[in-house]
Every structure is written in structure tokens, then in C-alpha cells.
Design a protein around this nucleic acid. Structure first.
Lengths: 135, 135
DNA sequence: GTTGGTGCAAACGGTTTGCATTTAC
DNA sequence: GTAAATGCAAACCGTTTGCACCAAC
């Protein structure tokens, strides 16, 4: 059965977590791999993916699969919402209270078990907007 | 510059729209291709993708890129929220009022232009839940 | 010493694209 | 007749996986 194989804290895993916690940019696996390579030049992208998967399953980081985009990762495990720029793709946190009662409302209406919700705002960040008005 | 090439209503495009509007299941491109092939056996998946892209850009259908999943398409173009089953992947509509004022609130807080938001509930549908309790 | 982890490269799967041919207008 | 659309197959790209070697415990 092998219920929960015990995690080993390897150098790679350690550094991946540290680098991810260091930034607020919600990097993709590839971006994070680049960051980690500054300290561990021989780390492979496959290892980064494997660790990001394990760490998010363990609840140590968050996988934020932003709609229709490359997967991104967040060292901040508190539940919060995101805002995505349609022009440059960057993702930032939204400072906003969590919406209360919605999950219960949808559970009652649908008859499903509701685990939670994902709210994502889409727009254009200041930088991209000003570039667009130039054109 | 070629600002907006004029759309031709081909048989393929017509049938793709008809089949998509016929169902409430938010099919993937592959699923829709299968459905369309009942009527046009020689249609290619590439054509389906191209048409889905064109139709959604034209606002005739909706692309619902559910986070981290295969892309799905919706013949219903009214703004509405979705509910996804984590076990079987199906996506259904949520009967719920649109949340008012959130976009303005986030725009004010962030300084971005906000185009809208996407709200997606995740849970387990009745079928999958009952299967799980069996195990 | 055991077993989980790593690096590498190949495979995978959804999506996009190049191109010669067909079709709507 | 012309430009847009099609079918086909290959390319693309993010992600996963198989495997031999390595390292945490």
C-alpha cells in the first residue's frame, strides 16, 4: 500500500522552497528552475516539477493553476485571490477579504460537495496599459 | 494591416456551433470534434480548434479555460460561473447572481484596469461522491 | 543498506502551424 | 477569381516518466 512515503529534505527541495518563499511573483516551474540554478547549477527541470508537486501535495506551497496559462507556484499558502495581467501574464495577489458563504450556497443549490472556490481577476497592469496607450 | 478578415460561414463552422449549442456539458475540443464527426466524418481536430478560436474571439461562443485543465467550450455566452468536479472533471453551470462591485473594488485597490473576474467552484459531484463512499 | 531523490532524455498530450487543396463569396 | 477555410501531418511546449546512479536516513 505504501501509504505516505517519508519525505527526505534534500538540498534541491530545500533550495526550491527557499527561492519560492523569497519572491511574490508566482513563478512558473521554468522560472523557478532558473532561480534555483543560480545556487544549484545542475538541477534539472524534472526535479523542480517533481518537488513542486510533492511540496504542494504536502501543503507546504500552493499550486496556482491560473486559467488557461502555464502553471504557477506560490510560497504563500494562505487562501487568497489573484489578479492576472492579460498582456504580460504576471500574477499578483489581491488584497481582499475572502468571500464568505458562497461555497455553502453553491453546495445547497447543486447538491455537490464543495471544497472551495477560486476567484481570479483579469485586467491590464499599469505598465502594460501605458504601453498600449502609446500605440 | 488586415484589420478584420471577413468570416465565411462554412459547413464545418456551422455544425460546430450547432453541436456546441445543443449541449450543456462544456465539451473539450476533442469531445466536440467527436460530436461533429457524427455529421462531418472527415473534419479534422485542427479545424475544430481553429473554429473554436475564431468563434470565441468573435463572441459567438465562450472559451472556459478552467484552471489547470484541458480547455472547454460553452455555447452559452452569458456571463456566468462554473462548478468543476475534481474527480471526473465535468463542468456545470452555477445558478448564482453575478458578484457586483468586486471589479471596481479591485481596480481601485490595485490601480489596474480590470476587465472582469472568473469564479470557479471546485468540489465533487453526486456521482463521484457516492462512488468514493463505496470504497 | 535501504529507499527515496536526482539528472537526463525520451515520451506524452493538448494545442498550434505550414502547406497544398478546396470552397464561400 | 480571390481570399478564407480545410485536412493532414508535423511541430510546439509545458509537463510527466523510465531508468541508472546518487544520497538521506
Amino acid at each position: 500500500m505504501d501509504p505516505t512515503p517519508k519525505l527526505r529534505m534534500t538540498t534541491q527541495r530545500q533550495v526550491i522552497m527557499e527561492e519560492l518563499r523569497k519572491v511574490k511573483t508566482h513563478p512558473t516551474a521554468g522560472e523557478l528552475c532558473q532561480m534555483v540554478r543560480e545556487r544549484l547549477p545542475r538541477i534539472s527541470l524534472g526535479t523542480v516539477y517533481r518537488n513542486l508537486d510533492i511540496l504542494s501535495r504536502s501543503g507546504l506551497i500552493q499550486k496556482i493553476d491560473v486559467a488557461g496559462q502555464e502553471m504557477r507556484f506560490d510560497g504563500d499558502i494562505r487562501d487568497h485571490y489573484h489578479l492576472r495581467c492579460l498582456d504580460c501574464g504576471r500574477v499578483v495577489d489581491v488584497e481582499m477579504e475572502l468571500l464568505q458563504g458562497l461555497d455553502e450556497q453553491v453546495a445547497a443549490e447543486s447538491g455537490w460537495d464543495i471544497f472551495g472556490h477560486r476567484l481570479e481577476f483579469v485586467g491590464s497592469c499599469g505598465d502594460c496599459r501605458s504601453q498600449r496607450t502609446v500605440n
